[in-house]
Simulated assay, not measured.
Amino acid sequence: MQNWDGWQTLLAVARAGQLGSAAAALGIDATTAGRRIRRLEAGIGRPLLARRGGLLVPTRACLDLMPGLDAAERALRGVGEAASGVSGAAEAPGWQRIRITAVPVLCDHLLAPAVPRLVADRPRLGVDLIPEERNLSLTRREADLALRLGPLSAVPREAREIGRLAYATYAATGAEPPDVLPWACLDGALGHLPEVRATERAAGRAGPRHRAGRLESLRRLVLAGGVRGLLPRIMAEADPRLVRLEGGLTLDRPIHLLSHPEDAGVPVIRAAAAWIEATVAAAPGPVPSREE
Rank of each mutant, 00 (worst) to 15 (best):
Q2F: 10
Q8P: 08
L10K: 00
A14C: 14
G17C: 06
G17K: 07
L19K: 04
S21A: 14
L26R: 13
I28Y: 08
D29G: 05
T31W: 11
T32W: 05
A33Y: 01
G34Q: 14
G34L: 05
I37E: 04
R39L: 09
L40Q: 02
L40N: 00
A50T: 14
A50R: 15
A50W: 07
A50V: 12
G54S: 07
L55M: 14
P58G: 00
R60F: 09
R60N: 11
R60V: 12
R60A: 15
C62N: 06
L65N: 00
L65F: 01
M66T: 10
G68T: 01
D70H: 15
D70E: 14
A72L: 11
A72F: 03
L76D: 10
R77C: 08
A83H: 12
S84L: 13
S84R: 15
G85C: 08
V86I: 13
G88V: 00
A89V: 00
P93E: 07
G94R: 13
R97T: 10
I100P: 08
T101C: 14
V103W: 09
V103S: 14
P104C: 04
L111V: 04
A114C: 00
P116N: 00
R117A: 15
L118Q: 02
D121Q: 15
R124A: 11
G126L: 11
G126V: 03
P131S: 04
E133S: 12
L138D: 02
L145K: 08
A146N: 01
L152H: 03
S153W: 11
R157T: 11
R157Y: 10
A159H: 07
I162D: 02
I162A: 03
G163P: 04
A166C: 05
Y167L: 04
Y167D: 00
T169P: 07
T169V: 08
T169W: 07
A172C: 05
A172P: 07
P177L: 12
P177A: 14
D179S: 11
G188E: 13
L193I: 01
V196R: 01
A198W: 04
E200M: 13
R201W: 09
A202F: 08
A203F: 01
A203I: 03
R205S: 10
R209G: 00
A212M: 05
G213R: 13
S217I: 04
L218R: 00
R219L: 12
R220A: 14
G225Q: 03
R228A: 03
G229A: 05
L230W: 08
P232F: 03
R233K: 07
E237K: 09
D239N: 08
V243C: 13
V243M: 11
R253H: 10
L258M: 13
L258W: 01
S259L: 09
H260N: 10
H260D: 12
V268R: 15
R270D: 10
R270W: 08
A271F: 09
E277T: 14
E277C: 13
A282M: 04
S289N: 04
R290N: 07
R290M: 09
E292R: 15
